[in-house]
């Protein structure tokens, strides 16, 4: 599930995760969250995450370039509960060079990670679509990890008038 890392980088990530877990605000009742990366942000610190904070759990010292990723979401989302998202990563998807993981990260949602995908050369194309929830106007980050351990990313600002996560009858 997690990409292979050096022992040092793994230790750094482990510490980030456990310290982050202590900051949980909103009640997620599941103790054994299979995706440790699906933890809730500490809501007492009510500000938008910045880009560095958003990618920190995934990118530890590796090279990260703002290229090669096409991210597509509507500029104005009708409703935050269902926002169509498409993305494409330029990659030959061969054994030698392919995308291994894609992370979709939210700037404002209670849970920063919206979804994580695991791909390989068998996919032929690093292209996918899904529907996300956005709790308000925010930036979305699509982060792709390549087989050489480096990362590519793209961001997009989405205006959301009816936020998800808020009850409206």
């Amino acid at each position: 599930m997690l990409p292979s890392l050096s022992r040092r980088d793994y230790l750094i990530r482990f510490l980030q995760t456990t310290v982050g877990a202590w900051g949980v605000g909103v009640g997620l009742t599941n103790a054994q969250d299979m995706s440790v990366l699906g933890r809730v942000q500490d809501l007492s610190d009510a500000r938008l995450r910045n880009f560095e904070e958003m990618v920190a759990p995934y990118v530890v010292r590796q090279t990260m370039k703002h290229e090669g990723v096409t991210l597509s979401l509507p500029m104005l989302a009708d409703n935050g509960h269902l926002v169509p998202l498409s993305l494409k990563v330029d990659s030959p998807m061969t054994e030698a060079s392919h995308v291994t993981h894609i992370y979709l990260i939210s700037q404002r949602n209670p849970v920063p990670l919206m979804a994580m995908f695991v791909l390989g050369p068998w996919n032929g194309r690093a292209e996918l679509s899904m529907r996300v929830r956005l709790s308000g106007t925010q930036m979305v980050v699509a982060l792709a990890r390549l087989s050489d351990g480096t990362f590519r990313y793209e961001t997009q600002e989405v205006v959301v008038t009816e936020a998800a996560c808020i009850d409206n009858g």
Partner: peptide, 12 residues
Amino acid sequence: VFRVEPTTGTSA
């Protein structure tokens, strides 16, 4: 050949 780990940020 494909795996996705969604969270609460994925639509219903």
